[in-house]
Design a protein around this nucleic acid. Structure first.
Lengths: 339, 339
DNA sequence: CTGAAAGCGCTTACAG
DNA sequence: CTGAAAGCGCTTACAG
């Protein structure tokens, strides 16, 4: 079946394409009678406007691009879910891309999205990204861009984040309050802002409570996965027998650490207490269940789209876009890996 | 910055738009010299073809739609990852939508994708879907459609699946081989084909091995989540004290069951053995780790896109599309929840 | 080897 | 209230 066009409706009814177009869009300067006629026929013929033609004329596609570092990821899944739910509500579709934590891929994908002419871009940047010119390019091309979770402070766009430093401080303080005397930290990679901030929160909590900051107690995760958690826990137990608490950046890493400690017969939380970060589903299912910081992924996704939507609307009205940064609350979820 | 157009290049060079267009696409009937001139200038001006205009002319957008029941889901995440990786390789972008296991939403989303004129559709159908006319509509509109994992046998399109019956048989037989004498089954909802097939595989294994099929040992999960696993495990222990094995449709449900049994002090696998289905990451991290059927999500995603791509190409060449069904291998992963 | 022309299907400023 | 016309930016069959 060939799709129906405005032209066919116009010819059938013996009126102009212009009037058909206007009637369908309820322009006030078309008579009620004509509108009825047109709408009824359109309905009968199951008329659907050709989206490509509409895009070309209106210069927008009602489609946005989304780049995340990793799809198979509890936190990001929740963000994606929030984004597509909110986007759908506002009539926008979402193209999803995964950067694999690679700067090269991320850059390529931004250009891909720009060449596809998406109306806006939502991104959580890769650990490997230190140069931000590709993001500047997007903004220079007048494509609104909003960052979430893993952001670049230096780029002047809207951002939606949590207070990583404060959350990490809370997590570490919880270990201190529950009696830990020597607390290690498994941190994320050196680059992304959030792993820096979480480290700083840890450090400040240590120093604020009369403990000595010891850099040999800080392990740097590169992959931020289960295996690294296992490995570093094994190393830690071997090299620092007196450590009695660990604040770990990432639940997946924390679950790996718990697994290793269980295997080694180290009792959690009696000998070592553990606090994770992000509150992945599995953290409540393992033994012992993991105390962690809840990071509101779904909410972050919704809010990220809302910010972008605002900019999309502002752009249409040719208003200036004022970048804003929104901070979401986090909470400590107390479970059985801490006293 | 206004985007550069063919017209600008043509005017600058004093040649026609036609020639510029051809030169950029390396048509053989344009002189080498002109091509160089055009390409150099295009490069300098950072020319990007207007995707909307190209779409309108070529009647394709190099974009496909993807509908899955749930985004926050280990198996589907892996499928999505496979799909977008393969699609990107072939120059296609993927619009992602979540049906929430709702027929109504799924139908709306199919229509949304059709009105956006995606080149093809990939779908895993909702549990709530019993009527398939929306899918037929897509195919009648000449939009290639491929189903994966949760399919409708009745729809004549390409499909990519696993042999659920066989896998369930293998899982149940593993319980029998390890000495279980009375085996329960937590099945999925009544509608989707795969939960029917898994149930049938379970039943056949029971009957093939001289055991009595007892429908009171079959519990029907509606939500297929952690809480249902917990609930049914509690009920089972209360009502059927002699059950010593459970084959559970879905790792998430199985993890819930393990959690409940752990709380009740029922020893796994000594008193009750458990086999799950799907091999979610957390299944290897819990205590005891879960024996399960590995379902190759990433591979399924890649293969699903490949099938769709084939149909997209066939359609362009105006060849007939012959629907095919591809079956992927599954394997039993033996862990500590069975003897 | 080059280009004028038609056309994809729509929207909208303008004239009547 | 209606419609002719221009135009969005591209592609391609056709003529020369």
């Amino acid at each position: 079946m060939k799709p129906v066009t405005l032209k066919q409706i116009a010819e059938t009814l013996g009126i102009s394409i212009t009037t058909v177009s206007k009637a369908l869009k309820d322009y006030p300067d078309v008579s009620k009678k004509t509108k009825r006629l047109v709408k009824d026929l359109a309905e009968t013929l199951n008329y659907k406007p050709n989206a490509f033609a509409v895009n070309l004329r209106t210069r927008e596609s009602k489609t946005i691009g989304l780049i995340i570092p990793e799809v198979v990821h509890h936190f990001f899944s929740n963000v994606v879910k929030g984004i597509i739910a909110q986007a759908e509500k506002k009539g926008y579709l979402v193209i999803i891309l995964q950067s694999n934590e690679s700067y090269e891929l991320e850059k390529k994908q931004i250009n891909l999205l720009l060449s596809k002419q998406v109306d806006g871009i939502l991104i959580s940047i890769a650990n490997g990204t230190a140069d931000f010119s590709h993001l500047q390019t997007a903004m220079e091309n007048d494509v609104p861009l909003v960052m979430f979770d893993k952001i670049a402070k230096i780029v002047n766009c809207s951002k939606i984040i949590i207070d990583d430093r404060k959350a990490a401080y809370t997590a570490t303080k919880h270990l201190i309050d529950s009696g830990c005397k020597k607390i290690a930290h498994f941190r994320g990679p050196l680059m992304p802002q959030n792993s820096i901030d979480r480290f700083l929160g840890y450090k400040k909590a240590i120093e604020d409570h009369g403990m000595l900051y010891d850099s040999s107690l800080v392990y740097i995760c590169e992959k931020v996965n289960f295996d690294e958690g296992k490995l570093f826990a094994q190393r830690l137990v071997k090299n620092h027998k007196d450590v009695d608490g660990i604040f770990i950046n990432g639940d997946l890493v924390a679950v790996g650490a718990i697994s290793a400690l269980n295997e080694l017969g180290v009792s959690i939380p009696d000998q070592i207490s553990i606090v994770g970060f992000s509150n992945w589903f599995m953290s409540s299912a393992i033994t012992p269940s993991l105390t962690t910081i809840d990071q509101p992924g779904y909410k972050m996704g919704k809010k990220a789209f809302k910010l972008l939507y605002k900019e999309l609307k502002a752009k249409k009205r040719k208003q200036e876009i004022l970048p804003q940064t929104v901070e979401l609350e986090t909470t400590l979820i107390k479970r059985n890996s801490t006293k």
